[in-house]
Design a protein around this nucleic acid. Structure first.
Lengths: 232, 232
DNA sequence: ACAAAAGTGTTAGGCCTACACCCATGA
DNA sequence: TCATGGGTGTAGGCCTAACACTTTTGT
């Protein structure tokens, strides 16, 4: 149902409202985010966070899920709002407020959606300067992710169903930007009781093959309901 | 500069944007929040969180500070955004998105601002049903405050400059809804090194008079820059 | 003297940290 | 056989949690 330009009239000025998504993925080595290249001004040709206008019949989280789907084809990934950015001059076109979301996806499941031509994964330490205030939004998203990882096993959203302890450790190290002792890390994780050994071990690296685990969501939910904290 | 009704025209529909404030205070016994009675429909006569429309020339945090000032006369209190509520039907008047903020004030410094006629403090376990989705906003604010207290000494924002250990403990117990052992609590707090004994002890309770402390912001900032965590 | 609340120290257990050697695999 | 990375256990220190009696003050 197309509307004519200028059909929406209000007694007081209103800001435009968008949702943006910081989409994190993990390729087994480094933490990455998905960016899109802007095809139109302002900031034409620069990279930016995926995002778009909030529709009048959708909640913010649904707008963000829609953006996520358009860029990745994913419908069930982890996503949550983390902060709203409302600086007066953050968009040169006028007053635009953005409700920023953080999504965690399994990179292997992403199959570029409709819009994906211009989308690309960037390693976190290789991110170009972004359009608008998206650099700040990204920094805040990272901060948020680091906090969250102490209370929730969000890492499992980024890993494939079946993963190894070194992968898990590497992921935690990428997010927190620290290094852990292998023995201590494994002991702590196993002690939580939310990892289930799969039994198989995949063939084929050029060295000793690690055992694999699966995330036990039931045990996690039980643990979470009693309240817990991951210390690092 | 008064505008005529209907002067603001946009090519696409836009939601209205408001800021709301969950203002916490502590009277030495229980945790309280400041509510205002609605004078106009919808929900006329019900209690609600202080809030109002975001102006086009102010950042969200400034809008929230303005609201806080109007209700409490305070300009420098602790305030931060914690979440945006954007459910499609949260306001019967139409699409209204609210950027919710959390403020911590020293109740003794509050002197009802311009609007304060209809404002009133409520104990947290005595809050009436609120207008709009403000019950949910309040619940989320509490959740946020509980999380935050593990990483930042936010409690000091709620206490007077000079306070006693039992007051501090009682505040923590009110926020976290748990009970601590006096000895362990005091030891942990003092061990952090961010409390400075004042030396005086105020006269006059009907029992032993507690010693008083002051919060040492410098030492706290130092500690924080190294990263720390309060365990409870 | 009594009631009410504040102050104070020790012990046991759990968690975190640091640390080094052997094993499996493919080249 | 060598190079690469994976797997594993123990000891010391620190923090947490549990616990009871004495002190101050006003009535």
């Amino acid at each position: 149902m197309k509307k004519e330009k200028g059909e929406y009239i209000y007694p007081f000025p209103r800001p435009a409202v968008t949702t943006d998504c910081v989409i994190f993925g993990y390729d087994g080595k480094v933490l990455k985010i998905l960016l899109v290249e802007r095809g139109i001004p302002p900031f034409k040709g620069m990279w930016a966070l995926p995002g778009g206008y909030l529709q009048m019949d959708e909640d913010a989280i649904d707008g963000a899920k829609r953006e996520l789907y358009e860029e990745t084809g994913l419908k069930d990934a982890y996503i949550e709002q983390f902060r709203t950015f409302a600086a007066v001059d953050r968009d040169p076109r006028g007053r635009v407020i953005t409700i920023a979301h953080l999504a965690l996806v399994k990179i292997s499941e992403v199959q570029g959606g409709d819009d994906a031509a211009r989308a690309q994964w960037f390693s976190l330490d290789d991110v170009p300067q972004l359009a608008f205030d998206h650099d700040m939004i990204l920094r805040e998203a990272m901060k948020n992710l680091r906090q969250k990882i102490h209370f929730e096993p969000v890492g499992f959203e980024l890993l494939p169903e079946v993963f190894t302890m070194p992968q898990l450790q590497n992921l935690y190290e990428s997010i927190l930007e620290v290094h852990f002792d292998r023995r201590n890390f494994a002991a702590k994780m196993l002690h939580l009781g939310i990892l289930e050994p799969t039994g198989d071990r995949p063939a084929g690296a050029s060295n000793r093959v690690p055992v694999t685990y699966r995330f036990d969501k039931e045990k996690y939910d039980l643990l979470k309901s009693k309240g817990f904290r991951l210390e690092f």
